[in-house]
């Protein structure tokens, strides 16, 4: 059985990527905490991770661009990006709850660090195996 990175690292690189994407969406929620009519968003983590894992196996519907002027048209099934259910929506239509969002963001950062730790130890064990320690 050949050793390859895909098998050795497992789910962790993808998980790390999804954590970063989730952090970006929440950073956007927090930046728009005072924007009238803005709807807070979040991802379904399981669905998004599943999507990331599947991506290698089956490509999403995409079109070939044969000219520089063609418009990118990826029909990616990005169904995991959802809207948050507001607990107390404000009069201006904004549904960002800054405290809740910040708590989720911090939690996401910690989960990111956990994923990072796992990935790092995978690399460490690989280099140990290579060196024969």
């Amino acid at each position: 059985m050949a050793i390859n990175f895909q098998n050795a690292l497992g789910i962790h690189p993808k998980a790390l990527e999804v954590r970063v994407q989730r952090a970006e969406i929440m950073a956007n929620n927090l930046a728009n905490a005072d924007t009238p009519g803005f709807k807070a968003r979040d991802v379904d983590f399981r669905a998004m991770l599943g999507e990331q894992m599947d991506n290698g196996a089956k490509q999403p519907l995409s079109m070939q661009r044969t000219d520089r002027q063609h418009i990118a048209m990826d029909i990616a099934s990005d169904a995991s990006l959802l809207y948050r259910t507001p607990t107390q929506p404000s009069v201006d239509g904004n549904t960002v709850d800054t405290q809740k969002e910040l708590a989720e963001f911090t939690k996401n950062v910690l989960d990111y660090q956990a994923s990072f730790q796992f990935l790092n130890s995978k690399f460490k064990s690989l280099s140990k195996a290579i060196k024969g320690e």
Partner: peptide
Amino acid sequence: TNVDVMDAAKTMMQRILTLGQ
């Protein structure tokens, strides 16, 4: 709040630079 977010992103980025160490 935005400063906090940026600080967290900075920590995450610094963390990724230590990968494999």
